[in-house]
Nucleic acid binder design. Structure first.
Length: 146
RNA sequence: GAAAGGAGGCGAGGCGACCGCGGCACGGCUGAGUUUGCUCAGUGCGUGCUGAGGAAAGUCCGGGCUCCCCCAUGGCCAGGCCUGCUGGGUAACGCCCAGUGCGGGUGACCGUGAGGAUAGUGCCACAGAAACACACCGCCGAUGGCCCCGGCUUUUGCCCAGGCACAGGUAAGGGUGCAAAGGUGCGGUAAGAGCGCACCAGCAGCAUCGAGAGGUGCUGGCUCGGUAAACCCCAGCCGGGAGCAAGGCGAAGAACCAAGGUUGGCCAUGUGCCUGUUCUGCUCAAACAUGCCGCUUGAGGCCUGUGGUAACACAGGUCCUAGAGAGAUGGUCGCCCCUGGAGAGGGGUCCAUUCCAUGGAGACCUCCCAGGAACAGAACCCGGCUUAUGUCCUGCUUUCCAAC
């Protein structure tokens, strides 16, 4: 449900190897397990405020990229680490879904990181000043196929 | 010193910090219930412990475990085996160890798909005369046959020299072929041939050594093509099928049909088992990989001792070391270590030239830079095999060269 919501989102940014989809948070789509107890308590009081602060990120590495789980994991970790590096400088209130195109397995580390930076710049998510990060969802899921 | 052979080991150098991920424990927080003690569930929170391999791989063998076929035992037959020198090891194996034969190497050593072709049947393309059976070329033609010089004789006939290649002999030589009926030599013969002899190879018998495969010696008659991953024979072994998405518990859950059931076959034995409190089977339709168990303590690792050439076995001690459920191990930094640098500085010392000095080489020290890999990622668990991988490490052995 979460992924369907994001796949229908309008804001998409393409590069040769990556696709970044940006959607607005919709907490009703989340299963209870994906929400911490503290968040759930906060939602009860003021749902809109939580949505403005929520920032979630997912990486989708399809089996089309590589059949070997080790390579998929390596790509996932690479982009995950890149996200964590930038997380303090990103605008709140968005859900992000990053997909890899099948050719990404052949690209080098630096090439992918360069594309990631380009995408962030074009999407306008990065702000100049740092923000306090209370709790960001850092959940990366290697996704099989749809 | 060089070249080679073989054995064993290691596998992101070591220590630490931070961030991130899987699992477990405790605590916190949130929610529900509550007999107000607590219990259950969830955690984007905290702390601690712990977290891939020698091949985790290929899925090629052997097992454990689980369910189904199917009530068990014994016998005979059928069936299966990509088991096939001998002896041992092992839970078992097509694996391992030791040995034998054969082949290769100067040697250390290496390779070996190594039962039977004299139980029988089949096949041996093309070529070739012939592929369990022969005569194309060739050689011979002793013995028969024909022709014929000469001699004896009246003739018949007899003796002798020569010729023909008709009958026939031969398997030496040529040619064909992966393969042509033991090999070499001497004798022998018309020509030849195990026809005879010597040695070698092979076969059979006897003796002897060995646990055995086999080894050694003697004697004998002289001789037998290949193929069994062709059928087959012999010996040995064997219930079959599916596989942890096995399977069990829980949750959910609609309807119908049949009444008996049982191993590849046969026989025998037994007071066999299940069966209307719904077992079992078939068909149709629909839904579903969602909670818990199975799940990691095992033919387990390490150390010591004893037995054994060894594989291995036994005894004692010690350790517990991933357990996810679409699948977790990666980054950054610091110090030390190792390797490389025709990078910088210092430099005991050595060499050359005209002393001072200049030029060159350079053990070692300091700093700087780069690097510390490859093959590859647990998915129920073991024992093997095979394949992939490194300027890696440590003993041992052989041959050649040099020195003593």
């Amino acid at each position: 449900m979460v992924f369907n919501h994001l796949y229908r989102a309008r804001a998409r940014f393409h590069d040769s190897n990556l696709i970044l989809r940006v959607g607005s948070p919709n907490l009703q789509h989340l299963k209870p397990g994906l929400m911490g107890s503290r968040i759930r308590a906060a939602v009860k009081h003021n749902s809109a405020a939580v949505c403005q602060e929520d920032l979630r990120f997912a990486v989708v590495v399809s089996k089309k990229v590589s059949k070997r789980a080790v390579i998929r994991n390596r790509l996932r970790r690479l982009l995950h680490h890149a996200f964590m590096k930038d997380v303090s400088r990103l605008r709140r209130g968005h859900w992000l879904l990053l997909s890899l195109k099948p050719e990404a397995a052949q690209r080098s580390k630096d090439q992918l990181l360069q594309e990631w930076n380009d995408l962030l710049r074009r999407s306008g998510l990065r702000c100049e000043h740092e923000q306090y990060v209370p709790a960001a969802l850092i959940r990366a899921e290697p996704h099989v196929h749809v």
